[in-house]
Amino acid sequence: MDYFILLTVSGIAIGVIYGLIGMGYALIFKATSVVNFAHGEIMMLISYMAFSIASSWTLPFWGLLLVCVFISAIVGLVIERVFIRPMLGQDVFSTVMVTIGLAVMIRAVVVLIWGADPLLLPTDIGDSGVEFGMVFLYTSQLYAIGLLAFCVLGMWVFLRFSRMGVAMRATAARETTALLMGINVTHVYAIAWAIAAVIAGISGVLLGTIYGLGPDLWTQGLRAFPAVILGGLDSVFGAAISGILIGVLENLSEGYIGQGLKEISGFLVILVVLMIRPYGLFGTPEIERV
């Protein structure tokens, strides 16, 4: 039983990171119908920016995170304005191709500026942690759990009660109608990219603190992708929950079966779930009148 609990808790610890990353994917898709293949790279870029900030100024973890949230929002807005907005009116496939190009560009820029050596993101929480009986969790992992909860709650409040959130949902439901109702759709898109970048920034800082930085950090974006599919591409809340599910599932499959099942368990679940619910666990069913 102890072994099961330990595997589950450590699965939750990595799952919340998948969940955070997944939320960013889902938010962009919900608002713009675009799968942002550069999301992992944006997360990596911000984590390297965090490294430069943390190396230049002595900031406590929360101070660093706040600065990174601000920078992430700017990065998101700039990317939307420079790369995505010119694609408005084009088909979704073209925009997706732009995000793929953007991803490759960010990977090259990161190596060009920061080099290829693995780096440690220096924060004041370092390797400190808390022991709960037999379970030990790094402070950064505890923060990750708290931050996921905060982001989920924040997104719910934002989408449910704020004027911009309602506009975003309206745009997601039917863009043309939203335009006719006077919603500034380009503004909605920009805000969606900014928020997704902020969530990516938070996950980047957490990943950098827990595992260190490397030019392959973007691959964590791919690892989180099953969570988005499982939760439903347009469900921000679903991505968060599914991230945790995938993390736990990966750990249990490795712990009890092994043989590399950890790598494919998430995708196996997706296959099964999609056969039963093609729109994911929490996604919106698309009904077409034919």
Binding site: Y3, T219, E250
Partner: peptide, 20 residues
């Protein structure tokens, strides 16, 4: 004997297995 994918970041399950 634990085989892992290149680029893997999280080894929590593997090390728990080793501990067990």
């Amino acid at each position: 004997e634990l085989e892992f994918k290149r680029g893997q970041k999280d080894f929590s399950a593997e090390m728990l297995k080793a501990r067990a």
